[in-house]
Design a protein around this nucleic acid. Sequence first.
DNA 1: AGAGGTGGTG
DNA 2: CATGCACCACCTCT
Length: 615
Amino acid sequence: MELRFDPENPRYEYIVQEDQLHTALEFLEKEKVVAVDVEATSLDPITGYLIIIQIATPHISYIFDVRKIDVSDNERFKKFLENKKIIKILHNGKFDYKYIKAKTGIELDNIFDTMLTEAVLNSGVGKAYYSLKDLVKKYTGIELKKEVRGTFERVTAKTKLDESQLKYAAVDTLIMFPVFEAQLEQLRNNGLINIGKLEFAVTRVVGNMEMAGIYINKEKWSSIIKNLGEKRDIYAKQFQEAIKPYFVASSIDLFGNHTDLINMNSQVQLMDLFNNRLKLNIPSTGDAILAGTDHPVAKILRDYRAYEKLVSAFGDSLLQKINPKTGRIHPEFNQLGTATGRFSCNNPNLQQIPRNSEEVQFRTCFNPRPGYKLVVADYSNFEMRILAEFSKDAKMISALNSGLDIHSYTASLMFGKEYTDDFKKKYPDLRQIAKPIGFGLMYGMGPVGLAGRLELETNRKFTKEEGEDYMNRYFSSYPGVRAYLDKVAKEAVRNGWSITPAGRKRWYHKPERDDPEFRRKQAQIEREAKNHPIQGTNADAIKYALVFIQERIKKDKVDGEITLTVHDEIVTEVREDQAQDWAEVQSEEMVRAAKLFIKNVQIRSDPFVGDEWEH
DNA sequence: AGAGGTGGTG
DNA sequence: CATGCACCACCTCT
């Protein structure tokens, strides 16, 4: 790889005045591809300060000091960064996009993201995050020095930037060209250009979504947690009381206070209790095992666990993530956080907030700001519809297109009963069996797993033979499904990858023939590959939908923003008077996105307008 | 610091 | 022989 600059002595121009800015733009406007980076005082664009924006050609980096020039006021600068024709190479451009938008109002456009590209090129076999350092090493062999980066944290409005800082800032942009060129070639070779474009478009939407955040009612949340904590404590006390007989002496500390006999959160101590003292011989302390254990202590532990889980995972830690400046939660969405193309979410993970039940209503604490509404829309039975489309199974397609209750219909085929509108009421037990089978088989589940799953769902024993029988009944009902899943699994094992119609690939580490775990590893690939095109297409569709929805918000001048996405669901926060009309648009755009890949099966998305998340 | 167990979501 | 896809948070223990 030949470099067009000297990493020890990069060419750069430090721009601190208006006239310099125009001269620099004069040169930059001639380029088709530039590299962009920013340096700021912290990782949080809401509370941090932007210091410089670097824009480079392959030969020279222009370093705009935004402390000295007010670029938010500069039409020409804005036009350049928002120009849809000029490609801007960035590494983790979401970060730069957010900073630039927050501090200058400029919305960076036409991003090529080297971090996302690497993730797309290595999905299934690579890392969740690639640093620029990783990529520079991989594609150029150069060891990028990152020590200078930390010095920007201490920069204020008056700090004079030194030469090492300016050189560092310049290298960070110049070095992106060779990475970009190598990656672009790789994207082409793997047919991943369109997925790359999709991810680059999505990253701006995600930037907006993270900046928007979502409001949470602190007081309500705290009171739910407090209540759950009290209930947990009652079970904790009961538990310690109930196990006393199994210990020789009760524990009393130096001050005469009773202390706990065991730590209820310790798996080791629980195993000792259950197996050595209670002689129950259980293999683990998981809920499924405890449920089948006829002992009062097990029952108390299960109750304790239910509350402890909610308090520990969703308790005060979540409130500490409220941003002091906005008063809202700004979760981080990693758009390539999974091997299938789905988003992952953290800090906090709002994708795993428990659904509302009679007892616990966490999601009701997420509300719109005054004068606004939450618009919530999800795809209904999406993965089932995707499976129907891909498998071309005539019966499954026609059932979904006729609006039948799909699990009832499946049960009617499996057990030879007539389908009626009240099937769900007439044969609840049959439907209860059909439903988990549909999901399980999409994940490559086998007869034993299926029997176990049915046991959980129905509280009665299922043998391996029954599991096998049900699988056969399901596959005979939908012969196209079996053929499709088998084909996908076989192709993945042969190719070493699987693919969605949108072109998203997932790679697999093929085991060596003489690997002692060959069979296990190959079976794993088969299961993962059966699921990938389905889950991945769900992800592809939701990502197109996010882009479409963002475009409509802008085009229709809707006063609102996207605040959350949870796999098959999108939540927006929209001004009250626009919310009803907008809800229809949001669902339409979701359906339009899904129809890019689903041609023969109807797609449904029903929107809800309200003051609480979930409906 | 990292692994393993447990359990919340789609 | 093992036996369901994709995650993240919290806890304990080494």
